[in-house]
Design a protein around this nucleic acid. Structure first.
Length: 629
RNA sequence: CGGGGCGUAGCUCAGCUUGGCUAGAGCGCUUGGUUCGGGACCAAGAGGUCGCAGGUUCAAAUCCUGUCGCCCCGACCA
C-alpha cells in the first residue's frame, strides 16, 4: 500500500499535476467554473442540478424514429443509439430504468425470490447440451475466445441457472427455490427496430423457480403472476394478462402481460365482456370434430376449371368470382427424418391463416416445405389440393372449418387447374380421410367467438412480461436432479418468468405522453420534483437551493434547472422530460411569498405559499408513488 | 434472408437528374450586445477528408463498381 506500483493507478495520479498545469494553460478560458462542492449525501435521494447533468434534449424529431416512445427517448435525452439495436443510457433514462428495476426487485424479494448475477458470457458447450446452440438459431450471439473456445452471449439463462442448481441443490428439502437476475441480455435480432422495443442488447428480469412437485410449481406460478400484476400497477402502466402458448406442460401454463397500444408487435384477442384474453398464437376454439363430421355435399357435381396463372387465393377468387371462404387452402409442410423428408398436407379455409405454432403442437417440428424439394416429390405448389394424399404419402391435417365445407374450390394438383365442387367424402379415399388429423391449426379472426360465445376484439400490444411453466426440459437435459424422501431421483420441475424493464419504459412513453412530451408516472419518473427558477439568481436561487435541500431531506428526488436559459426554453424542456411536479420560482410570486406548483398531467398551475411547501409536496409525492391497491 | 430507401456540420435537411470557382440553409454551439414567465433579436464566429475504397474524367458530393453502416415493409423471432 505505502509503495504504490505503476499498475495500481497511484503512480499515474501522482505524476499527473505537471501535465495538468500545462493543460490548464493551454485551454485556459474565462468561463466562471464554480468549484466542486461536495453536497451532503441525503438518504439515497436523487439530487441533480441541470447544468451539471447530461440531458441532451432536442427540438428536432430524429429522422429514424417512427414511434412516439422512440422519439421521446431521444428527444428527452434518455438514451442514445450507438449501433443498430444498441443504446447508451443517459442520466435521466438510467434513473428511470433503475426505479423500474427497483420496483421489480422489491416485488421479487417479497415472494422469496433471491437475486443473483449470472454471466453474460457463457460457454457454448452448455447450450449444446440442451440443443439450444442450434435450436436458438441465428438469434444467438456466438463468438470465440483467443484459444478458439466457443462462447455465446446469453439471450436468456435457463442453462446457466439450471447448471447452478445442479451443482448446489440435491435434496427435496432445499426446494422450492426461486432465483432471479436483472441484467443485460443479447439477441442478434434480424431487424432491431422501434427504439427500445426490439433491441440486440437489453435488460431483462428473469426468474427461475425449481420444484419437487407440480403443486409447488403451480403455487410459485400464482405468486409470480400476482407479483407481476403488482409490478405493472406500481409502474403506472396498463398490462393485460393473456393466455399464451403453453408449451410442454399444457393447460393453463403460460401467461403474457401485454400493454395494449398501437406500437406493439403482438396481437392480443379479448372478449368484449372481459371474460377471455389470449395472444393470437394461442387463441382458438375448443371445438372438437372428427373425420366422421365431414359433410357429404353435392356428390358428382365437381369439375375441373382452367385458372391460368391463378395460384394465390385472391387470384383464384377473382377469376372464379367466389368468396375466399369457399376455398380450401392447402399447404405442404415437411419434417426431416433419416430417410428424407416426411410430408404433411395442411388444409384451412381460404379466408383463414394457418397458425404454425398450433400445427407444430400436433404434428411436431414441421416447417413450410422447400419449394423445389416439394415439386420434386410431386407436389404442384400453388395448385395443391387435399386429394394429393390419395397418390402421395403424406399426413393430412384438416382444420375443422375447412372440414365443414361442401362443394369447395381447391387446387387440382396440376398447374393452372382448380377443382370446384370438392367434397371430402367424395374426393379423399376413405382410409386417408379416417387417418387424417382434424385439429384447430389456424389463427382465429375477429368474426370468431370466445370459448364462452362472447364477441372478440383484436388489438396490438407490447409484451412486457411472460410467466411460463417450463417443466423438466432443462433439468432433464442437464441432469439437474434431486432426491425425494424415498431416495428416488427426479428432475427438478422448473418455471421461468421474464420482464423487460425497457419495455415497461416504452409502454409508459407510448401510452402516457402528450404532444408536449413525457408524463412520467411518479413511481418511475427520473425525479419527482423539478425546481424551475425563472432566473437562477438572487432570492430565487436561494429559495431553489433551500427547497432542493429540504425536499431531498424528505426523500424526494429533485432536479434543479439552474441553467441560464430563457423561461420559454426551461418550460419546453420541462414538459419534454416530464418530471411530475414542477415548482416555478418567479420574482412576483416570491415577493408575495408564493411558489407556482404545476403538475405535469394538469393544465393549470396553482400558487401556493412558500411556507411549508416542501412538506406539502413530499406528502403529495408519497401519496402518488405508494402502491395503489 | 427478400423488397424499398438513406448516408453531406452535433440535429433536421437542400445541392446529385444535366460533373465545373471557396459545398449551403435552419436549429444547436462560441463571443459581444440588447432582451428574458412558454423554444427571443442583432452582429461576429467555430464547425464538414460530402460513410469508406477503387474507377471514369482536365475536373467527382454529383457518374460507375465494390464495400460498410443505418432506416422502413415483409420473412424470422418471444
Amino acid at each position: 500500500m505505502d509503495r504504490p506500483h505503476a499498475s495500481d493507478g497511484f503512480l499515474r495520479i501522482a505524476s499527473r499535476p505537471a501535465a495538468r498545469r500545462q493543460d490548464s494553460r493551454r485551454f485556459a478560458c474565462n468561463y466562471p467554473r464554480p468549484p466542486i462542492q461536495t453536497r451532503q449525501v441525503l438518504s439515497g435521494a436523487i439530487s441533480m442540478y441541470w447544468s451539471k447533468t447530461l440531458i441532451p434534449t432536442s427540438r428536432e424529431v430524429p429522422a429514424d424514429a417512427d414511434i412516439i416512445s422512440h422519439q421521446l427517448l431521444i428527444r428527452a435525452g434518455l438514451v442514445r443509439r450507438i449501433s443498430a439495436g444498441v443504446y447508451d443510457w443517459l442520466p435521466l433514462g438510467w434513473k428511470s430504468m433503475q426505479k423500474i428495476m427497483d420496483i421489480i426487485r422489491q416485488e421479487m424479494n417479497a415472494i422469496d425470490a433471491q437475486e443473483v448475477h449470472l454471466p453474460a458470457l457463457l460457454p457454448a458447450e452448455l447450450w449444446k447440451q440442451t440443443g439450444r446452440y442450434t435450436d436458438y438459431g441465428p438469434l444467438l450471439f456466438k463468438l470465440k475466445d483467443r484459444k478458439g473456445s466457443e462462447m455465446i452471449l446469453g439471450p436468456t439463462h435457463e442453462e446457466c441457472v439450471t447448471e447452478l442448481m445442479k451443482a448446489c441443490v440435491s435434496s427435496h428439502k432445499q426446494l422450492p427455490l426461486t432465483l432471479y437476475q436483472i441484467q443485460g441480455k443479447f439477441r442478434d435480432e434480424a431487424r432491431p427496430r422501434n427504439g427500445l422495443l426490439r433491441v440486440r442488447e437489453f435488460f431483462m428480469k428473469d426468474a427461475y423457480s425449481f420444484h419437487s412437485s407440480l403443486e409447488s410449481l403451480h403455487e410459485t406460478y400464482q405468486a409470480m403472476y400476482q407479483a407481476y400484476v403488482r409490478i405493472f400497477k406500481r409502474c403506472g402502466i396498463n398490462a393485460v394478462p393473456v393466455e399464451a402458448d403453453s408449451g410442454p406442460i399444457g393447460g393453463d401454463a403460460s401467461h403474457e402481460f401485454i400493454c395494449p397500444c398501437d406500437a406493439g408487435e403482438d396481437i392480443i384477442v379479448r372478449a368484449v365482456d372481459g371474460s377471455y384474453a389470449a395472444n393470437l398464437e394461442r387463441a382458438g376454439n375448443a371445438r372438437q370434430l372428427s373425420a366422421a363430421d365431414a359433410p357429404v355435399g353435392n356428390t358428382g357435381a365437381s369439375s375441373r376449371v382452367s385458372t391460368p396463372g391463378a395460384s394465390s387465393i385472391a387470384d383464384v377468387c377473382n377469376f372464379l368470382k367466389v368468396p375466399q371462404s369457399v376455398l380450401i387452402k392447402t399447404l405442404v409442410y415437411s419434417r426431416q427424418s433419416d430417410d428424407g423428408p416426411r410430408w404433411l398436407v395442411a388444409c384451412v379455409r381460404g379466408d383463414h391463416d394457418i397458425n404454425e405454432a398450433k400445427l407444430k403442437k400436433i404434428a411436431g417440428n414441421v416447417e413450410l416445405a422447400d419449394e423445389p424439394a416439394a415439386r420434386a416429390a410431386g407436389f404442384t405448389i400453388g395448385f395443391t389440393g387435399p386429394h394429393i394424399v390419395n397418390v402421395l404419402p403424406a399426413q393430412l391435417v384438416i382444420d375443422p372449418d375447412a372440414l365443414l365445407l361442401t362443394d369447395a374450390v381447391t387446387g387440382d394438383n396440376e398447374v393452372d387447374v382448380h377443382l370446384t365442387g370438392f367434397n371430402w367424402r367424395e374426393h379423399i379415399q376413405e382410409d386417408k380421410l379416417h387417418t387424417a388429423r382434424i385439429a384447430d391449426i389456424r389463427n382465429i379472426t375477429e368474426s370468431d367467438k370466445a370459448p364462452n360465445g362472447a364477441a372478440l376484439v383484436f388489438s396490438k400490444g407490447i409484451e412486457l412480461g411472460h410467466v411460463f411453466k417450463l417443466g423438466t426440459k432443462y433439468s432433464d437435459a442437464l441432469a439437474a436432479t434431486f432426491l425425494d424422501d424415498r431416495q428416488k431421483s427426479s428432475s427438478m420441475i422448473m418455471g421461468c418468468y421474464g420482464i423487460g424493464p425497457g419495455r415497461i419504459m416504452v409502454a409508459a412513453l407510448e401510452t402516457l405522453s402528450d404532444a408536449d412530451g413525457i408524463r412520467w408516472p411518479m413511481s418511475i419518473a427520473p425525479c419527482h420534483v423539478l425546481i424551475t427558477p425563472i432566473k437562477y439568481d438572487g432570492q430565487a436561487r436561494q429559495v431553489a437551493d433551500n427547497l432542493h435541500t429540504e425536499l431531498s431531506q424528505l426523500g424526494m428526488d429533485v432536479l434543479v434547472d439552474d441553467r441560464d436559459q430563457r423561461p420559454g426554453v426551461k418550460f419546453k424542456d420541462a414538459d419534454l422530460i416530464g418530471i411530475p411536479v414542477r415548482l416555478v420560482l418567479g420574482d412576483k410570486g416570491l415577493a408575495a411569498g408564493q411558489v407556482e406548483v404545476k403538475l405535469r398531467h394538469m393544465k393549470q398551475a396553482e400558487m401556493l405559499p412558500l411556507e411549508g411547501i416542501a412538506r406539502h409536496i413530499a406528502d403529495m409525492v408519497n401519496k402518488s408513488r405508494s402502491l395503489p391497491d
